[in-house]
């Protein structure tokens, strides 16, 4: 049987919860590239490369989870997971304000609308969020997405919580399963990549 291996790119700024999310979903201990932070970013360690986790659906089918830094200077890393993408999860950290420039670069790089790539925006660290402020942030993001002809779910997420993390996968599954109706067949075919 042909092996199927798809990728979920999880892109976000420092402290957005990429490593934690992968740790919550992954069946294997995430391969993390963490280093002691040299500046005060609110935590001792931070990711300096790709985090990797894996979710086996059966012996021939798996989803790779790739945590990627959100800054443009890491676009070389974004490139490495571009092929065979199942979805693009952008994690935004509540409270730091939206880094619109980074968001724009990510969307420009992956061009989800042109490629029919499912996108979900997760907002982390919302435990103490003021409802009104959170709505403003959602409006911000929605506005930015509309500039890329994108309509995507934007929702608070707790990367430590299995239910919240599974909901993200369910959203991608919903978006992916309707893709065939609307997307060109060549792109759909291109999204299925055999495990190497």
């Amino acid at each position: 049987m042909t092996k199927i291996y798809k990728k979920l790119a999880i892109v976000g700024e420092v402290g957005a919860g990429k490593t934690q999310l992968i740790s919550t979903i992954s069946e294997i201990s995430p391969f993390a590239t963490e280093a002691r932070s040299s500046v005060d970013i609110g935590k001792e360690f931070t990711t300096v490369g790709i985090d990797y986790g894996r979710l086996s659906l059966d012996e021939d089918t798996a989803l790779g989870l790739y945590g990627l830094p959100g800054q443009r200077r890491f676009s070389l890393l974004w490139e490495t997971v571009k092929q065979g993408l199942w979805g693009l999860l952008i994690l935004v950290k509540y409270g730091d304000g939206l880094n619109l420039e980074d968001l724009e670069h990510i969307l420009e790089f992956y061009q989800p609308h042109a490629h029919g790539l499912p996108v979900v925006i997760g907002i982390s660290h919302t435990e103490d969020a003021h409802e009104d402020e959170l709505e403003i942030l959602v409006d911000y993001i929605e506005f930015a997405l509309s500039g890329h002809n994108l309509i995507a779910p934007i929702l608070p997420v707790d990367p430590r919580d299995i239910e919240s993390s599974i909901m993200l996968l369910e959203l991608f599954h919903s978006l992916d399963s309707v893709g065939d109706i609307y997307q060109e067949t060549d792109f759909v075919a291109g999204r299925v990549a055999d495990a190497s």
Binding site: I4, L57, D58, T61, L63, L169, H173, D176, D180, V192
Partner: peptide, 13 residues
């Protein structure tokens, strides 16, 4: 392949 992946993902979820 896409269907198979989707089916398995659904089962997992």
């Amino acid at each position: 392949q896409g269907d198979r992946f989707g089916m398995l993902m659904k089962k997992f979820l």
